[in-house]
Write a protein that binds this DNA or RNA. Structure first.
Length: 190
DNA sequence: GGGAGGATGGAT
DNA sequence: TCCATCCTCCCA
């Protein structure tokens, strides 16, 4: 028995074999899962509501499309670790490495909880490049916990954001997944 | 050793 | 639409 404030246990983490599956499958299933981080001596949860898949060396928007570099080599590792890099010199972006070893792929977390935007999310939870290559587990302070599956009808697929440089074919791939629950019927005021 | 460009976000 | 700001990559 854990007191919620003083001796709170960490929610169960998704196992690493959740992440070693194909990137698009992982991206789709991450919608609705809980992004867990440690803050002020307790574990906090945010519902993941927007992600993007970056899938292998053929994907011109994927950082690994040019092969192994100092930045991209983390994507060649087995799924289940963090890939955190600095974007535009200002924003840290949080990615979950996916797929088997030697297949470079990752899922960018673009939104969770009330935080809208990949740079804002990392800033809000205090995530930086120090987390790069760390396991997606309570040990690193940042991980993902299970949650009931979101029905397909509540997930919107669109092209990815900010990757026009990847050319029309890859820029148009519907690799972005957004949670879009139907609006509840509002109770009208009398 | 230098220069260009980028998976953003906030102000204009 | 502009631009802050800096790491990585590529080309000398």
């Amino acid at each position: 028995m854990n007191h919620p404030d003083t001796n709170q246990s960490a929610p169960d983490a998704l196992p690493s074999d959740f992440f070693t599956r194909p990137t698009l499958t992982v991206a789709r299933e991450l919608i609705g899962k809980q992004f867990i981080f440690h803050d002020e001596s307790r574990w906090q949860a945010l519902e993941i509501n927007e992600v993007e898949a970056y899938d292998g060396m053929n994907d011109k928007a994927c950082h690994a499309h040019v092969g192994r570099t100092k930045r991209s080599e983390v994507m060649f590792l087995p799924g289940g670790i963090w890939y955190v890099y600095l974007c535009y010199g200002i924003h840290w972006l949080a990615n979950l490495v996916t797929g088997p070893e030697d297949y470079p792929a990752a899922v960018l977390i673009r939104g969770a909880g009330r935080f809208d935007g990949p740079g804002k999310l990392t800033k809000a939870v205090g995530m930086t490049g120090k987390i790069n290559r760390s396991p997606v587990s309570p040990d690193s302070g940042f991980y993902v916990a299970d949650a009931p599956a979101v029905p397909k009808s509540h997930i919107q697929r669109t092209p990815r954001i900010g990757i026009d440089y990847a050319g029309p074919v890859w820029a148009k791939k519907p690799y972005r997944f957004v949670l879009s629950r139907p609006k509840k019927n509002r109770i009208k005021s009398p």
